[in-house]
Design a binder for these strands. Sequence first.
RNA 1: GGGGAGGUUCCCGAGCGGUCAAAGGGAGCAGACUGUAAAUCUGCCGGCGCAGCCUUCGGAGGUUCGAAUCCUCCCCUCCCCA
Length: 408
Amino acid sequence: MERRRLEAQRQLEIIKRGTVEIIREEELLEKIERSLQDERPLRVKQGFDPSAPDIHLGHTIGLRKLRQFQDLGHQVVLIVGDYTGMVGDPSGRSQTRPQLSHKEVVENAQTYLDQFFKVVDRERTEVHYNGEWFSKMSFEEVMKLAAKYTVARILERDDFSTRYAQGNPISIHELFYPLMQGYDSVAIRADVEIGATEQKFNLLVGRDLQRDYGQESQVAITLPVLVGLDGKMRMSKSLGNYVGIAEEPAEMFGKLMSIPDELIHPYFQLLLPLSPEELSEIEGQLKDPQQNPMKLKKRLAFELVSLYHSQDEAQEAQEAFERVFQKRKLPEEIPVFQLKWDEPTIWIVRLLTLTGLLSSGGEARRMIKSGGIYLNGRRIDDIDLEVPLEGELLLKVGKRRFLKVVKG
RNA sequence: GGGGAGGUUCCCGAGCGGUCAAAGGGAGCAGACUGUAAAUCUGCCGGCGCAGCCUUCGGAGGUUCGAAUCCUCCCCUCCCCA
């Protein structure tokens, strides 16, 4: 008995780490205790919005938390929001999302799962589509669900109220999103749901609905939102300030090296499994003016690439980075483009667009004018340049795009 | 249903008959400086072998020598009233 209590306490401590809020902590402790007593794992829910199938580092905060639950013996229940996807989560959105076809949802779900299981244990995961229950709902049941919440409460939400205040359109079906997500918790009898802080409202709706449907309410756990590479906005694919966990090692490494210094510590803290001691050591080094933060950034990049790829690949990525950007040498591997061209020479602007390096002649002209184009190591300043097509040509666009061109 | 305000280039937003490929800001790209950091400064930011031409200002027509700007119809959004 006493032993169980201690074990529950221990689990709670682990789960608590890195969270912003647990609503409510006492309930969680009680649930864990009961779970130990009945030998029934907690059902920890996570939803997935199929309009955004790629997992980036921002998502891994939640995924790592799920993994922790699994390591403590609990069950993850992933919900593919094929029906909610038809609505589109209004959280953090200023606009209505486009609706997806069923085919797109299924394809995206597959992509998502492949990445999801890089962090989360497949064995302890149950996957459901919320169409399983929503497609069977009668209109009467939909009305019953809709009757459980009031417009004022839904509009309390920051994103709705902001949109409303700014005079932006909100469609009626969007108001259903929180209800649908909440109902998912009813359908799968969730004990816990986790989400980023912006998900708090949706998580709380789940609690209310479960109670209304005669179930015990889930515990809502919120986690910090990761700031993106720009250092300002939340990490998101649509803002282009993200690092996908499926990205190539070199790409991942490079992107991480470009983060502003202020993000070094939060990234270590939120993305890597480090002990509090290690973290405070890193903090100390960051404050020390003798230390170049770049070193820590390299370590961060190295460890993250190791985590999602391998140590060897991280090592390679680091060497490639140092070579290309710090020593300004050529990368070891440069993609080769087979150019089909019959004339003995080719106009530089045409060359740049035909190889796909730049999308239009106008862009190529501009790039040349601003000094961003190198041919065989020499900067080009002549827009009318005719390039003789002999052997191998080496093109460089900006700092990081290289291409070898051969006649083919 | 009645009344009012709007829809402009990736986003915000000015323009309200020619001088408009369309101010300004943001994002983005390139250059300088660097630690591929931030900050800063500079340039670019529809297409075209580009001192010229072509396609853009919700959609379709029309008026005019000339329309993002005026007129008609349609679509969409917001606000007030019912």
